[in-house]
Write a protein that binds this DNA or RNA. Sequence first.
DNA 1: GTGTCACGTATTTTT
DNA 2: TACGTGACAC
Length: 738
Amino acid sequence: MDVSHILDDMNDPQREAVSAPAGSMLVLAGAGSGKTRVLVHRIAWLIQVMGAPSWGILAVTFTNKAAREMKGRIESLLGQPVGGMWVGTFHGIAHRLLRAHWQEAGLPREFQILDSDDQFRLIKRICREMNLDEAQWPPRQAQWFINTQKDEGRRPEHLDEGGDPFSKQMGAVYREYQSVCNRGGLVDFAELLLRSHELLRDRPDILHHYRERFQHILVDEFQDTNSIQYAWLRLLAGKHDNLFVVGDDDQSIYGWRGAKVENIRDFQKDYPDTRLLRLEQNYRSTGHILKAANAVIANNPSRLGKNLWTEGAEGEPVNLYAAFNEVDEARFVIERIRRFVEEGHRRSETAILYRSNAQSRLFEESLFQAQIPYRVYGGLRFFERAEIKDALAYLRLIANPEDDASFERAVNMPPRGIGARTLEGVRAHARDFGCSLWKGAHDLVKGGALPKRASGALSGFLDLMEQMSSGAADLALDELVSQVIAVTGLSEHFRKSRDGRGLDRVENLEELVNATRQFSFDAPLETGVETEDLPGADTFQIGETAENPLSSFLSHAALEAGESQGDAFEDCVQLMTLHSAKGLEFPLVFLTGLEEGLFPHSMSSEDPVRLEEERRLCYVGMTRAMQQLYICYAESRRLHGREHYALPSRFLREIPSEFVREVRGRPKVTRPVYSPAATRSTEQASGYRLGQRVLHPKFGEGVVLSAEGQGGSARVHVNFEAVGAKWLMLAYANLEPI
DNA sequence: GTGTCACGTATTTTT
DNA sequence: TACGTGACAC
């Protein structure tokens, strides 16, 4: 077979990585050095040259997006589907293991996944039940504590008994939380990893099976692995020495959520025979940009060391703009974007990057006024929306009535007269009898001790659930969902709500029905794990429990929260935080808000370890740029309603001046928020200017406060005399200028 | 049981 | 400034 296509167009280190003999390998891949390409080509090499069966390969990523991309690229390179290969996220693969071995993992068959929001609500409820003062013991902190423990592989019983009062109290919450989860068959994200680690650790037969099966394990973004993920990998790899990991210590920006860069260093210790390769040739950025970025990251003392270079042109220097204030910064950025587009480029070749989400607002307003379409990354995703989670809570309760978290959510949404007092009774009963809320509610209704009204409301809810559950098995998934949003009154509730977003919510619920229809249509019924010829499968069952469509959809909803914005097809300027920019590249990049206290953020600038991470973040931002990089800072900035005067970021001083060109600013710029110029451009954009009086058929007279978005999704913020300030979709608002 | 006001607080985000 | 939460009133 001709395999030259696998190695064609690769540089020496890339080729060496791809064609290395079996054995563990650590590839330190700098930004833009073709990391994913190496991973994908390595897989092709394993299959087409080394003759590995596709089912013998496990490829792990962090995000669903990365997994999808890798899968797609593997398939197009191989010219065939990935077959039995496992390509997925850590969580996705852990989930798969737990579904296949739920009994051995000690889980109920219908276990459900809690996302962070579900987890938070549950923890909050538990803190309340434990009578903890929220000010003294914030539930957020408890959540953080629990997840940290799990990420480190610690169960409540592993906690230090003689610990400080804080750890003691948090440990108690952890214990209680875990017992509620266990009783209800609830598994949070960290639990997926921890429990699948324990499964492999405690079941030598199962471990043996997967060790024999996965002769090759490949890991992307290895610098982002946390302790339990690395432990899981090591366990699965065993003595096979078959880990091929790719990462970049300079792009480790998730330490704050448990990622351990140290894993890279430990990897060399744990696998002394490992081969180390560096990919340092960059195919993305111009020479100046690269040198500037190198200079910044060189200030981090604890690096493995790497120096990116390019064969390409030096390009322009890095442009530095000292803005008068944040309004001027936005003005400048938008002016440059406009110029860039006038030169014939696409808007989507441009990205505005910032440290924190709050910074996006001004850019959005300015882009709107300039009539430039844009897209903001991040924010609420489809399956995270409140109304969707409400509907999902009913579905989960149908799938598993023991699920207390879903019971709490569904029981009085839409409001049906089941109040705090009644619920308190249910909780107390469930607590006393160690049963689920579902069963507790049944007992109370049957016991007849409840006030008449409460009893009626509660039994109404129970009947409703039973009615839906009994019919559930005979319905297609989308029919079931359709029935749920109708019968529960959710749809009606949002339709009637006079909250401006009510109609949006109804539409989202309808979209949920579509999503389920689509899901059952292209759901991969992954029953066929090719295990017959594999060793070790005789002592336990695999895949004996293919999930039913409902369970499988619910898992999908929790593991893959969906996109935040659907209409990505338009040619848009891209707005995102530095964190979400990782892995992307743009010809023109604006790195904004380079001010002490903002970037590096004041919450990180004291601690040297966190400061290094901020610097890596800066490095990530700079290396997103292909052709042109603009870095901006503002001399003054309005933050939390106050004026701040910050020094330019220390990172700016770290860029040698030879790579920088200062862009001259306007000598004087006033705050042009309500300046005639600004209002004039709004007028052109939307037909309304700021401060314009308008008439709405329902809300009456009001004043335009601001406007954002573009085209069909343009919205205006109007302060109505009668009903106060509201955001309205321009396309539907029927506003009349007065 | 639901709506309104005041208060406090304020990175980064995926699974 | 703006949002979410919590106390309080209807």
